[in-house]
């Protein structure tokens, strides 16, 4: 109907068009809500984020987070008082897991906050300008991609002192490459669309074309990638801590807790298995949500 309505009958066009907008947003939500794994992912991610934000109110024993020792309560198995049991100095494991999510998510926010803007900007420039800009940026990216991130992070944290700050730096140093690659390939495709040429003819600046014309078309891809990334960043951060090169005790970090608890396996399993499960659940949640977002956007984004 709207196809034939070439502006000649504004009244009916007005009626038809906003309805289409609402139904688009609704269609997206409907598609997402009908995807059970995506919804499970979203719920898990929401729980993890709430734990991190409201840790002092959610955790059963907030006073037991770091510098707390109660030798009478050492190695207690899971019970109604201590759902996840207690650790080798008598601290509640559940409390420390909830606070552990704080550290993990802080790591995610800082790493992605540093690497996404940088990576996206380089990707946009390489894809749009081409020529030597593309050669320099993309060859640098290829070199950076050839280095395993965990090995690089190990090297950096070993040289600098091992702490949370340096772990963030170490992971960010290589993380941008994936975003550069992604945005580069999207930009290359977008560049052939006439709206980019149109903007050039209309006298738009390079800044406008990069950040007002091209970037808005990359947002859905970036959000999917960032969600999937969050899980991997948690894993790498935990791995660094597990190896003793990340967060140092007594700060409650999931990786450190798994490492400390591993000394008491298998009899006092809860001390390492519970934080390990917490890592697994968080990564699973972010991956399911990321896949769900990808399904939702891919169908809608007709490029």
């Amino acid at each position: 109907m709207a196809v034939l309505n070439n502006g000649s009958a504004p009244a009916s066009v007005e009626e038809a068009v906003p309805a289409a907008t609402i139904s688009n947003a609704y269609k997206n939500w409907y598609r997402f809500s009908r995807n059970p794994t995506a919804v499970i992912g979203a719920v898990i991610v929401l729980i993890v984020i709430s734990c991190a934000l409201f840790a002092p109110w959610i955790a059963p024993y907030p006073e037991q987070v770091d510098n707390f020792v109660d030798f009478r309560a050492r190695h207690l198995p899971p019970s109604w008082e201590h759902w996840f049991g207690t650790d080798n100095v008598g601290r509640d494991v559940l409390t420390r897991v909830i606070y552990g999510y704080r550290i993990s998510l802080l790591l995610v926010v800082v790493v992605l906050g540093l690497s996404i803007p940088f990576g996206v900007m380089l990707g946009l420039m390489a894809g749009y300008f081409g020529g030597w800009v593309e050669i320099v940026i993309m060859r640098l990216t290829d070199i950076a991609l050839a280095i395993p991130p965990l090995v690089m992070a190990l090297a950096i944290t070993a040289v600098l002192s091992p702490n949370l700050m340096n772990a963030m730096i170490a992971i960010s140093v290589l993380w941008w490459t994936w975003h550069t690659r992604l945005i580069y390939s999207i930009t290359r495709t977008l560049k052939t669309q006439e709206f980019v040429e149109a903007a050039e003819i209309l006298g738009a600046s390079k800044f406008h074309i990069l950040f007002r014309e091209l970037l808005p078309n990359c947002v859905s891809a970036i959000s999917v990638k960032a969600t999937l990334d969050a899980g991997f960043v948690i894993l790498i951060g935990a791995s660094l801590s597990f190896l003793g090169l990340g967060v140092q005790p007594p700060t409650p970090d999931l990786g450190t807790m798994v490492a400390t608890g591993a000394d008491y396996l298998p009899d006092r399993w809860w001390q390492s298995v519970m934080p390990g499960m917490a890592i697994l659940v968080a990564i699973l949640g972010f991956n399911l949500l990321g896949d769900g977002l990808r399904d939702m956007f891919d169908v809608e984004d007709v490029r």
């Binding site: 669309q193 149109a198 903007a199 209309l202 738009a204 014309e213």
Partner: peptide, 26 residues
């Protein structure tokens, strides 16, 4: 210039006003 394919000559992520205003801004 007016392009062949109106589907790709307008940025799908920008409103009509934003697209039409580009030459005015610059």
């Amino acid at each position: 210039m007016v392009f062949q394919n109106p589907g790709s000559s307008l940025n799908p992520r920008r409103t009509i006003a934003q697209s039409v205003a580009v030459p005015l801004i610059f």
